[in-house]
Design a protein around this nucleic acid. Structure first.
Lengths: 213, 213
DNA sequence: CGAGTAATTCTGCAAGCGTATAATTACAGA
DNA sequence: TCTGTAATTATACGCTTGCAGAATTACTCG
């Protein structure tokens, strides 16, 4: 009777789920969607494949959870810097922009993750809701901060105008994030951050750094 | 002796390859990377699966060809409008921007295609070369046109400055392209095009439409 | 310390995958 | 019209996939 069944310790559900989610994201980022199999996830998480269906109702369910976790992390990372520290609205806006186009928010693996999930977003309504919420939440934050930054200089903007400016600034940031992730070696360090800052300044017609462009 | 073997007609190699490539792109766009199987491709193209390995050395080889074909189409579509028609450099730049953020260049399926291929780009060197060439080609075109547009007003820009402006404008365009594709219902028609135009005007400090913002 | 139970591992299955190759067919040229 | 050959279809193989359920183990509670 060969008793080579592997030993294990019971862990609390949350840490097990977390391990599975982290394994999923790690595989998706490093090796693409086709490498995200239940067996690979289990191995990466250090468990056997049965655990996936024990803690999630299906592989797709785990994917949804992983996507949600990733988006939340991205949001938190880009906003942590600007929330803390205080300063003027312009300074906080500058910090938000910088954080959004530099690591750890902007890096090749984050782009891989985004690309790996985006096609599921189109077909899975739960994932689509997560996606829209995250995007609009970020853009709304941008809109509020742009409005505040402009207000500091005494000018006022209508809601419609602020919306357009936020869409534009969001596009610059998204574009730089995308390019930095797709061609990581094509730009100097800080180059994308500086370009992002100057572009937003030009779009909203306002210096964020105290210097004149 | 059941002779239910399907009838067929011989076609020239180019049209067969083209049908397989179009089927590949169609599946990738509509149903994502996991739906792109040799059997699905063959069915979509109206042939049997043996054809794929008859005309391509492997499925991956077909994927490369499809990616290349897609990128070439995108490039041609975005540049067709601005090349023809003449006009000032500013007018041609405005047309290029408009074409780049409106259908058929900017649409959900183009984004799906891009996302589906991007992870292969990271690992396959042939695909990476195609990717870099396409990206840099577009950005260089942008840089040339920005330089020309500014020159029309009598100003001059250094090469370094033109490069930064091109990266910034490319980011806006990419960002709007991405957002239009990811949330097709979140924007009015022409909204993204107008925002793109105004943003580029602000970044390069120049009116492209003859009006003052 | 012993029994119950839930967490975890293990094994198996049906379906689908990419690839290889044999069998057939359509067409060109003699 | 017949024959050779390349294009096309059809079939099969070995492997992997997601999923399901039985077997086993670690831990809790009396």
């Amino acid at each position: 009777m060969p008793k080579d069944r592997r030993r294990f310790t019971r862990e609390d559900p949350d840490s097990r789920k977390d391990a599975l989610i982290r394994a999923t994201l790690s595989l998706m980022a490093a090796r693409g969607p086709s490498a995200v199999t239940v067996r690979a996830i289990a191995e990466e998480a250090g468990v056997t494949q049965g655990m996936i269906r024990h803690y999630f109702s299906s592989k797709q369910d785990l994917m949804n959870a992983a996507y949600q976790a990733h988006m939340q992390t991205q949001t938190e990372m880009s906003q942590a810097t600007h929330d803390s520290g205080g300063g003027t609205a312009r300074q906080r806006l500058a910090r938000l922009i910088h954080a959004s186009v530099t690591p750890p928010v902007a890096e090749p693996m984050a782009l891989s993750l985004w690309a790996g999930f985006i096609h599921m977003v189109r077909r899975d309504s739960a994932m689509r809701v997560t996606h829209e919420k995250t995007y609009l939440h970020y853009r709304d934050l941008l809109q509020v901060m742009i409005t505040a930054a402009i207000a500091e200089t005494g000018r006022k903007v209508s809601t419609d105008e602020a919306r357009s400016l936020a869409i534009a600034c969001n596009a610059v940031i998204d574009g730089l994030w995308l390019e930095g992730g797709a061609l990581p070696d094509a730009f100097d360090s800080d180059e994308l951050s500086q370009i992002g800052l100057r572009s937003v300044e030009a779009i909203i017609g306002l210096s964020l750094t105290g210097e004149r462009a």
